[in-house]
Simulated scan of single mutants.
Amino acid sequence: MKDLVKSAWEALCRRYSSDEELIRQLWDELEKGYTAKDRHYHNLAHIAYMLELADRYKQEPQQQDLLLFAIFYHDIVYKATRSDNEEQSAVIAAQRLHLLGIPEADILHVKEMIIATKAHQTNADYQTNLLLDLDLAILGADQERYDRYSEGVRKEYSIYPDLIYKPGRRKVLQHFLAQPHIYKTPAFQEAFEEKARANLQRELKES
């Protein structure tokens, strides 16, 4: 799995830079971030799943590349105790994409996409909505995969006792279920909405 993610990263970067040392250094940083010992869900498996689905819902090349950069960097900073993970991830993405020679307008777009994963609100930009749907695709996965996700999230918040964690988690589940649509794009609504609602309702009932 790691090799597949690494290969996808290298192929993406080589479309913009021939500096193999830079590409390797950036990968090492990504790998270190996503394999930290406190990453039980927001890890390389999460990135791999998003990349797999991004390929299934592929766009035209330039737009697809920006989506891929956003996928790789959207959780580069992730700490359960922080409230600015998305903003910090966006800052790092901008700095690294500048090194790869990505145009400033495209860098700004990637930053905006990453920051949008904080509130997960429907956006005027289709690409951003697609990133948000990819980020939440796990909610509509099969039961076993969903349960691994929810267990992983609980481990990432293990510093909090059940007394604090469970009410917060129930609030998150209820928030998603209260929305007219969990997913922003018609393709994801069709493919994942029904299963996501079933998974969320099951976890809420069992919590």
Rank of each mutant, 00 (worst) to 15 (best):
H120R: 02
R96D: 12
T81S: 14
H120P: 02
Q143S: 09
R82M: 01
I114M: 09
G168A: 12
L100S: 14
Q88C: 04
T128L: 00
S158E: 08
E156K: 11
V91A: 09
Y78D: 07
A90T: 05
I114P: 07
L139M: 07
T117C: 07
V110N: 03
S150D: 10
L97W: 12
L108N: 14
M113Q: 06
L139H: 01
R170K: 14
N85F: 04
G140V: 01
I76P: 07
A124G: 14
L100G: 13
A94F: 08
D162Q: 14
Q143G: 01
Q121R: 09
A116S: 15
A90P: 04
L134G: 07
H109Q: 13
E104H: 05
I159Q: 07
I114T: 08
R145K: 15
T122M: 08
L134R: 06
T122W: 09
L134T: 06
Y126Q: 06
E151H: 05
S150V: 13
A116R: 06
I164C: 10
D142M: 09
Q143M: 04
S83A: 03
A93L: 10
A105Y: 06
M113F: 05
K155Q: 10
R170S: 09
Q143W: 07
R154Y: 12
A137P: 02
T128N: 01
V77F: 07
S89T: 03
L139C: 00
R148F: 00
K79N: 10
L131S: 05
L132I: 10
E104L: 10
L99K: 15
D75M: 13
I138S: 07
A93C: 14
L136N: 04
G101V: 05
A80S: 15
L163P: 06
I138E: 05
L99G: 05
A141G: 02
H109Y: 12
T117W: 08
D142P: 03
R169Q: 13
A119Y: 06
N85Q: 04
A90H: 07
A80M: 09
A124S: 11
K155W: 04
R148H: 00
Y165C: 10
Q88I: 03
D125K: 04
I115L: 14
A141H: 03
I164V: 15
R145H: 13
A119Q: 09
L139I: 02
I76G: 08
L136I: 03
D75I: 14
I92T: 14
M113H: 01
A93W: 08
A124V: 09
D106Q: 14
R169A: 12
Q88V: 05
I159E: 06
A119D: 11
G101H: 08
G152Q: 03
G168D: 11
A137K: 02
G101S: 09
S83C: 01
I138D: 04
L163I: 15
Y157V: 05
K155V: 01
Y149C: 00
L97H: 10
Y146P: 00
V153N: 12
D133S: 02
D162L: 11
E86Y: 08
G168M: 14
R145G: 03
L99T: 08
E151M: 01
E156Y: 13
A94E: 10
L97G: 10
I76A: 11
I76D: 10
K155S: 02
I114K: 08
A137T: 02
D106M: 11
D162T: 12
Q121W: 03
E104M: 06
V153K: 15
D133C: 00
Q88D: 09
Y126L: 09
Y149R: 02
Y149M: 03
H120L: 04
P103W: 11
R148I: 00
